[in-house]
Structure formats: structure tokens, C-alpha cells
Amino acid sequence: MRSASQATQILDDSVPGVSIEDHQMLMAKVADHGDRDAFKKLFLHFGPRVKTLMLKAGADQALAEDIVQDVMMTVWRKVHLYSPERGAVSTWVYTIARNARIDRLRRRSAQPYEDLDGLELASEEADGEAETFASQRSECVADAVADLPDEQRQIIEYAFVQDLSQSEIATRLALPLGTVKSRMRLAYAKLKGRLEVLQ
């Protein structure tokens, strides 16, 4: 295992400091030319992070590896459905990972989410301004989350990373459900306010 992780580390280091624009460029190469090298870079960046997400959501090693394969294969197959004005590549990969989490860890259906994918695409015209805004927004969202008051940030991380349900969060923090909801609303309002300054 150790040698495997070292191998991965070395490969990951071969694409240092990949920025959001770089991800978008890599996606364009995959979409336009089926560029396998570009895809490999995306895999080496996102694969290990999707795996972390699945492990934190309770998957064991083998299942987490399987889901990484599924998610990244979906990235390859659906690359044409990604559009930069919708947001960063990381946001798009997150939504694919979330859908896989719903299907495979929660054993529910991600179909409603997928029904909307086509609609999004059909209703949007490419717009350079929206594109710029989307990538700025994504760059700043991680900082914005980190700056939330602890009691709000914790709930956001429980929900998005650990995949805890709202009632599990309430139980874990010994809080009434209503308090969890209102902290979620506060966190969202803060993040939204901060991201809208960019517009």
C-alpha cells in the first residue's frame, strides 16, 4: 500500500498548483480531442479527493475505490455536459460524486438530479461574464467556508463532506433540528452574500 501511495503522490506532484482555469482547459481538451493526458491530470487531482469524500462518508477502501472509478468514468463520458458558466470543474465533479454517494452509499435515486442536467444546459447561453463570475466564485468559496463561525462551518462540513443527514447532525451536536436548520440558513446567507460581492 505504501508504495502505491508514494506512486500516486509522485504523479500528483507532477501537476502542481493546478488552478481552476487549468482544470477548465483540461476539460476542454478532453471534450474536444478525447485527450487522455489531460484526463489523466484531472484523474490525479480529483480521484484522490473523491476518495477522501467517500471514506469520510463511511465507504470502506474497496467501495471508495470503486466509486472513484465510477465518478471519473462519468467525468469522461459526460464531459460535454460540463459548461464553465455553471461553475468550477470541482463543483461539477462534486455533483457527480454526490450523485454517486446518493446511489451507492444511501441507496436512493439520483435520477431527479440527472433529470435537471439537460435542462440546465438547454436553458443557458454561453456568456463570458457568467463564466468569469463562476470561476471567481469557486475560488473564493473555500475561503468563505473557512471563515464561517465554527458552529456554522461544522454543520456545513457534516452535511457536504461527512454526508450526515440533518437529523444525524442534530443528534451528534445535541441540538434541536430547528437550530441545525437555522444555522444552515445563516451559513448559506453569509456565503451567498460574500460570493455576490463578486458579481
Binding site: 504523479l11 479527493r49 475505490e65 468559496v141 467556508v145
Partner: peptide, 28 residues
């Protein structure tokens, strides 16, 4: 979209977990 950006931002800042030795070959 703003709500999903939260997920994207958190995914991007996660510490990468080492993948299995054959993971890259498998996907490629």
C-alpha cells in the same frame, strides 16, 4: 449553484487519499 459551489470548494480542499496501485491503469 451557490450551494453546490460549497461542495466543490470543500472537495478541492480535501486532503487527497492515496489511491490503490492499479487505480490509474484501471481508469485509463
Amino acid at each position: 449553484r451557490v450551494a453546490e459551489d460549497i461542495g466543490g470548494g470543500l472537495l478541492d480542499t480535501e486532503a487527497p487519499a492515496p489511491l490503490a496501485a492499479d487505480a490509474l491503469d484501471r481508469i485509463m
